[in-house]
C-alpha cells in the first residue's frame, strides 16, 4: 500500500485494528456451541445490558418524543399542516431516531460496563484462570454478551419507540388538544409496516450486533491496567457512536 503523506504505520493502524476486531468476531462465532448454560447465561446478560438500561431508554424515549412533537408541531402549524405531526414523529422514530439514539444510549450505559467488566477480568487474571481450567473464555464470557446485545438492543428500540410515541401523544393530544383519532389514523395512513417499521428493526438488530461486538472487543483487548481499562471504555463509546452513524447511513442508502 502506498502511503504518500503520513508514515504508513499511522494509516495502517486503524486497518489493522479492524482486522483484529474481525478475526476476534470470527473466533467468537466459530466456537459457538449452543448449550443450556449458554442460553441461561445469555438471558442473564440480557438482564444486565437490557433491563439495566430501561430507565435511561424510557425517560430518553419519552422526552425525545415530547420535544420532537413540540418542534414539528410548531413548524407544521405555520403551514396549517399540524395534523401531519404524528406522521413525522412516527417516521423519524421508526426509521432513524429510535435505532440510532437507543444504540448510542446503550453504548453509554451497557457497552461501557461490558468493556470495563471484561477489561477488569483480564486485569485480575480471571480470563487466564478460565483458560487454565480448560474453560473457553470466548464461550463463557464473550458469546453470551454478544448474543445478549443482539437481542437487547432491538428490544430497547421497541420500548424507546413506544415511549417516544407516548411522549408525542402527551404533547399533541393532551397539551395541544389534537384529535386522538386523527393522530393515530394519520400515522397509520403513512407508516408502512415493512418499509418503515421493519427496516428500522433490521437496523436495530445490526446496531445491537455492532455495539456489543465493539464493547466486548475493546474489553478483551484492554491493557490489564487501570489506564488500559479506562481507555478501552472510552474507545467503546467513541467507536460505537461513529460506526453506528456510518452504518446508519449505509443501511439507509441500501434500504431506500
Amino acid at each position: 500500500m502506498s502511503a504518500t503523506s503520513s508514515p504508513p504505520g499511522r494509516l495502517l493502524n486503524p486497518l489493522r485494528q479492524l482486522g483484529r476486531a474481525g478475526l476476534f468476531l470470527l473466533t467468537a462465532f466459530s466456537r459457538m456451541r449452543l448449550t443450556r448454560f449458554q442460553a441461561a447465561e445469555t438471558l442473564r446478560q440480557i438482564y444486565f445490558s437490557g433491563v439495566r438500561s430501561l430507565v435511561i431508554i424510557v425517560t430518553g424515549g419519552f422526552f425525545v418524543g415530547l420535544v420532537l412533537t413540540l418542534q414539528t408541531y410548531d413548524t407544521l402549524s405555520r403551514f396549517g399542516a399540524a395534523e401531519a405531526v404524528s406522521t413525522v414523529l412516527a417516521l423519524s422514530l421508526f426509521r432513524e431516531l429510535g435505532p440510532v439514539l437507543t444504540t448510542l444510549l446503550f453504548a453509554g450505559r451497557a457497552g461501557t460496563s461490558i468493556t470495563a467488566e471484561i477489561g477488569l477480568m483480564r486485569a485480575t487474571e480471571q480470563l487466564d484462570a478460565l483458560d487454565l481450567m480448560a474453560i473457553d473464555p470466548m464461550e463463557r464470557i464473550v458469546q453470551p454478551r454478544l448474543l445478549a446485545g443482539i437481542v437487547a438492543v432491538p428490544a430497547l428500540v421497541l420500548i424507546f419507540n413506544v415511549c417516544a410515541i407516548l411522549g408525542g401523544v402527551v404533547f399533541a393530544v393532551f397539551m395541544m388538544g389534537s384529535d386522538p383519532i386523527t393522530f393515530w389514523s394519520n400515522m397509520q395512513a403513512t407508516v408502512e409496516l415493512w418499509r418503515d417499521f421493519g427496516h428500522g428493526m433490521l437496523k436495530a438488530v445490526a446496531f445491537g450486533f455492532l455495539a456489543s461486538w465493539l464493547a466486548v472487543y475493546f474489553g478483551w483487548t484492554a491493557r490489564p491496567t487501570s489506564e488500559g481499562v479506562a481507555l478501552a471504555t472510552t474507545q467503546t463509546v467513541i467507536a460505537t457512536a461513529i460506526s453506528v452513524l456510518i452504518l446508519d447511513f449505509v443501511l439507509s442508502a441500501f434500504m431506500l
Binding site: E125, Q126, D128, A129, L132, M133
Partner: peptide, 20 residues
C-alpha cells in the same frame, strides 16, 4: 490436547483470580 492436559493441572494465580 492442551485442554485435556489442563484438566489435570491446578493453578493458583497471583491474586487468586476468583470470579467476582
Amino acid at each position: 490436547q492442551l485442554n485435556r492436559l489442563r484438566r489435570n493441572l491446578g493453578v493458583l494465580l497471583q491474586n487468586g483470580a476468583l470470579f467476582t
